[in-house]
Amino acid sequence: ISALNTALVRVVKNSNTLGIAIEGGANTRQPLPRIVTIQKGGSAHNCGQLKVGQVILEVNGISLRGQEHEEAARIIAEAFKTKEKDHIDFLVAELG
């Protein structure tokens, strides 16, 4: 990934849903998952820093590079479900 501005976004689990839709994953034309929708009222929306179009590079320090779509979605879902943390740290890239 060329020079991008990346940001570390902390999403606090302040509602019972995360509420994001992602597209892509390894072996697709969108090799890293990109946020395509953010659901109002979900924790992602409430945090206010995640935006449609951002590409998710890491989740809690776990790189999504090379992860197929289902696996990437599972990693994000597990990060939201786990009781070990009250937040999720997303490393996102802002394209363009």
């Binding site: 995360l18 839709a21 992602i22 892509g24 697709t28």
Partner: peptide, 14 residues
């Protein structure tokens, strides 16, 4: 010419 599939999977993560 190897062409990447154009479809892209989309999933909701609730």
């Amino acid at each position: 010419l190897f062409v990447e599939p154009q479809w892209v999977p989309v999933s909701w993560v609730y």
